[in-house]
Simulated scan of single mutants.
Amino acid sequence: MAITFAASSHATVRQARPRGRAVRRNLTGWAFAGPATALVVGLSLFPAIWAFFISRARWNGISPGVPVGWSNYERLASDPDMLAAARHTLLLTVLFVPSSIMLGIVIAIALNQRIRLIGFYRTCIFVPYVASAAATGILAGFVFNPQFGAANDVLRHLGIPQQQFLESPTQALYVICVIALWGEVGFTTVIYLAALQDIPKELVEAARMDGASRWRVFRHVTMPELRPVTVFAAVWQTITAVQLFDLIYTTTRGGPLNSTQTVVYYIYELAFQTQRLGYGAAAAYLLFAVTLLLTLGIIWYSRRRGSEVF
């Protein structure tokens, strides 16, 4: 009887020791990650909740706010400036997202070949992505300057009339899209390049042994394998396009004639230039809702097509 009790006690002690070590490891991990986690949550969750209450008030940041209920959201539906900014944002998104994905695929396929100096070429493609968007905007301002810019100098040598680029209401948004592509295509190229290198070589070799051409291999083998990455790139680039601000701020400031004023830049003007913080917070929450719906729509469509990404 005593032997049985001693054995059970020894087993209990052995079970308690791993649990104690696991608890100590968890406490140690949270001791390192806890402060950073609290900081991130405090700097994201609290401002988001506070902004929601601000969006239901009329406040200029100095005098006490006046509660107005949902009237700020109701005014957004009939605000001509907001509707124009939404159209500009939609056009920019429609142009930017497919172009960045297609260019990323094409460049990734080119950089997936075994050629000399391939590391140098890959670095050159990715450098614009890691460069500051503010620096990119300032550089683009010089390149597309109508008087002495390099873009018009190239057109002059090709015998093409000079263009106004960022100073033309009909051209500025398209030029912004080109600049954004130059800065963001490195991201899609890198993720597609990683996905291409992750495709099993056995699949490609089997398709070629069956007599498939390069186009058929790309269409029926490569593209299905790249579908999850394409969904991720579409979600990421959609969010990037909808929230594009720094590039517009450093190039056109929403001009000329508000032709490049996107929703994010309009929110900036409402909150920090006209001091209509409540109205600007309502516009920000509306943008968040639209971005969330777009993201969920892309994920839902991809799952219906059989691509499990998230």
Results as ranks from 00 to 15, higher is better:
84 A>F: 07
84 A>P: 09
84 A>R: 09
84 A>V: 11
86 A>S: 12
86 A>Q: 07
87 R>V: 15
89 T>Q: 03
90 L>F: 11
91 L>H: 08
91 L>Q: 10
94 V>T: 06
95 L>V: 12
96 F>M: 09
97 V>S: 00
100 S>T: 14
102 M>C: 14
103 L>H: 03
105 I>A: 14
105 I>H: 03
107 I>Y: 00
109 I>R: 05
111 L>H: 00
112 N>D: 15
113 Q>S: 07
114 R>H: 10
115 I>A: 15
116 R>F: 01
116 R>C: 12
117 L>K: 04
120 F>A: 14
121 Y>A: 13
121 Y>V: 09
121 Y>I: 08
123 T>W: 01
124 C>R: 05
125 I>C: 04
127 V>T: 11
127 V>F: 08
127 V>A: 12
127 V>S: 10
128 P>G: 08
131 A>Q: 08
131 A>H: 07
132 S>N: 04
132 S>I: 09
132 S>A: 09
133 A>V: 15
135 A>T: 10
138 I>K: 05
138 I>F: 06
139 L>D: 06
140 A>H: 01
140 A>T: 11
141 G>D: 06
142 F>M: 11
144 F>M: 04
144 F>I: 08
146 P>V: 03
147 Q>R: 14
148 F>Y: 14
148 F>D: 00
152 N>L: 05
152 N>F: 01
155 L>E: 06
155 L>P: 00
155 L>Q: 10
155 L>W: 10
157 H>D: 09
158 L>G: 11
160 I>C: 04
160 I>R: 12
161 P>Q: 09
165 F>P: 04
165 F>M: 02
166 L>E: 01
166 L>V: 03
167 E>H: 15
171 Q>R: 00
171 Q>M: 03
174 Y>L: 13
175 V>F: 03
175 V>Y: 02
176 I>A: 05
176 I>R: 05
176 I>M: 12
178 V>Y: 05
